[in-house]
Amino acid sequence: MQRNKKRKLQALAGFLEIPEDIVLDLPRITMLGNKQLLIENHKGIIEYTSSLVRVKLSQGELIVNGSELMLGNLQIEQILIEGLIGTLKYEV
Rank of each mutant, 00 (worst) to 15 (best):
S51W: 10
L88D: 09
P19Q: 04
I63L: 12
L38R: 01
G44Q: 11
Q36H: 07
Q10P: 04
S67W: 07
A13D: 00
K6G: 03
I85R: 09
I45Y: 02
L80Q: 14
G86S: 12
G86T: 04
G83E: 06
P27A: 05
V92Y: 13
M1N: 03
I39Q: 05
L57G: 06
T49A: 15
L57A: 03
I45H: 09
I46M: 11
H42K: 05
N73C: 08
N65M: 01
K5M: 03
Q10K: 10
G14P: 08
K6W: 03
Y90N: 08
K35Y: 10
V53C: 13
Y90L: 14
I39F: 02
G72K: 14
M1C: 07
V92P: 05
N34S: 13
V53Q: 01
Q78D: 11
S50M: 14
R28Q: 14
L69T: 11
D21N: 12
L12F: 12
R28V: 15
L69P: 07
L84M: 13
I63Q: 11
I81K: 05
I22H: 03
E68N: 13
L62K: 03
M70Y: 13
A13H: 00
G72L: 12
L74H: 11
K6T: 00
L71D: 02
N41P: 03
D25Q: 04
G83I: 05
F15A: 13
T49P: 09
E17F: 03
K8D: 04
R54K: 15
I46V: 15
L38W: 03
E47D: 10
L26R: 06
R54I: 14
E77A: 13
E20Y: 02
K89P: 07
E68R: 00
H42Y: 12
L52Y: 06
G60I: 02
L32M: 12
I79W: 09
I39R: 02
L74T: 14
G33R: 10
I63D: 00
K43F: 01
F15I: 11
E47V: 11
I45D: 09
L52I: 13
S51F: 15
L24V: 02
S50K: 15
G44F: 01
T30L: 00
Q36V: 07
A11M: 14
K56P: 02
L84H: 13
S50G: 12
R7S: 01
K6N: 04
G60D: 03
E91M: 04
R28D: 10
I29H: 05
E68G: 07
R3H: 02
E61P: 01
H42E: 07
G83Q: 04
V53H: 08
V23S: 04
P19L: 01
I29S: 08
G14N: 12
L69H: 00
L57C: 09
L12D: 09
L38Y: 09
G86C: 06
Q59N: 10
Q78M: 15
L80G: 11
L37I: 08
L57Y: 02
L74S: 12
R28W: 11
R54V: 13
E61H: 07
N4G: 02
A11L: 15
L80C: 14
K89H: 08
K89W: 00
E17A: 00
L32N: 10
I81V: 15
G33E: 08
V23E: 06
Q75Y: 13
T49R: 14
A13C: 05
N34E: 10
I76Y: 12
G33S: 12
Q59L: 13
R28E: 14
E17N: 10
L26N: 09
G66F: 06
N34H: 12
L38Q: 08
